[in-house]
Write a protein that binds this DNA or RNA. Sequence first.
DNA 1: AATTTACGTCAACCATATTGACATATCTTG
DNA 2: CAAGATATGTCAATATGGTTGACGTAAATT
Lengths: 188, 188
Amino acid sequence: MVDVNSKDAASRSLETIQRQSSGDPAKPPRWDIIELLFFAYRDFVGDPDDVLDQFGFGRAHHRVVHFVHRYPGLKVADLLDVLRITKQSLGRVLKQLLDEGYIVQKSGEADRRQRLLFATAKGEALVAQLAGLQTDRINRALKDFTPVEIEAIGRFLSAMIDRNDPDKVLQVILGQASAKTDGRTNKT
Amino acid sequence: MVDVNSKDAASRSLETIQRQSSGDPAKPPRWDIIELLFFAYRDFVGDPDDVLDQFGFGRAHHRVVHFVHRYPGLKVADLLDVLRITKQSLGRVLKQLLDEGYIVQKSGEADRRQRLLFATAKGEALVAQLAGLQTDRINRALKDFTPVEIEAIGRFLSAMIDRNDPDKVLQVILGQASAKTDGRTNKT
DNA sequence: AATTTACGTCAACCATATTGACATATCTTG
DNA sequence: CAAGATATGTCAATATGGTTGACGTAAATT
């Protein structure tokens, strides 16, 4: 440890020593947005944690049951694209949700290799409860915003998402977002 | 497995079967924002992963070295507040960053029990590289936004953050955000 | 002098992710 | 129809990043 007791560093308050920028002045880092996104997401995903604990679940279960509920008939492969995790990792969480009756599988009609996923009433109830907490936070945050501002916020979040290989779910979401914002449909 | 081959479920496309809402109609879940935040954050934090891999680091290292760089002289306790993790968990990644020379410690001048953290040039370079990637994404997303819209986006993200027990770092960030939005300077 | 605080550390454990290999059922294609 | 590709499941081993609880030391506070 460097025990120099540096006066200048140690004695300044957090406010005064905070860095303003530190790179190419032509492309200043967006420290504000970077950090606001970190904190906003930290608190946003933190809301459901207590509830999930009571069910013996973690955030992974939340993500899975959420997307299955929202996009009934989702294939396992779709879910892997959305969550960007491996089959292994999904497997355990999915098995738990199946075993405990939050999700059911049906084999595909056209392609019977596929396992289409559906949330049960139990699963829907869980998702609704968790979405309620997050919706409360969002509504609180948006309380004093105009519709135009809210539209801009959605457009920003949408623009932050990779467009290179949009999976099925993403196509739906981005399609909706742009449909809302400019009236264009995006069904390609 | 429920192998019913349900026609109605399996044959509908993802677009047509997507749920519109499923709860109290008086408080409809904000599915759009919930999911946009998920995808936006997924891709936002995904950018640095490849670089971090090359350094043998993970996202935990990124968060630590980021905040230490941005708020030089941060105490260990402050970092715990910001990251919302335990001392144990922080300990491991912090030790690695110290051992490999990305961060140094200095004991506090006023209170010599404190270990004030500072990023080295090596640490700053890493943070700058990672912030560059994220800034590129943000700038791309904000390309066609007006200053007024950008201000609203920042205000929204800020409003999504818990106000109950704002730690030191958060006070700085939120102070800045409000200073920007209403013209007050915040140099204290 | 006693207590509290800031930090570090040990041990055990858990959740969630990884890679790689392999099995099965089913669809597609030559 | 045979061969190959695809969708899914599973086994084993491993890594990362998180947890709790206990304990120790140095330094500040009372």
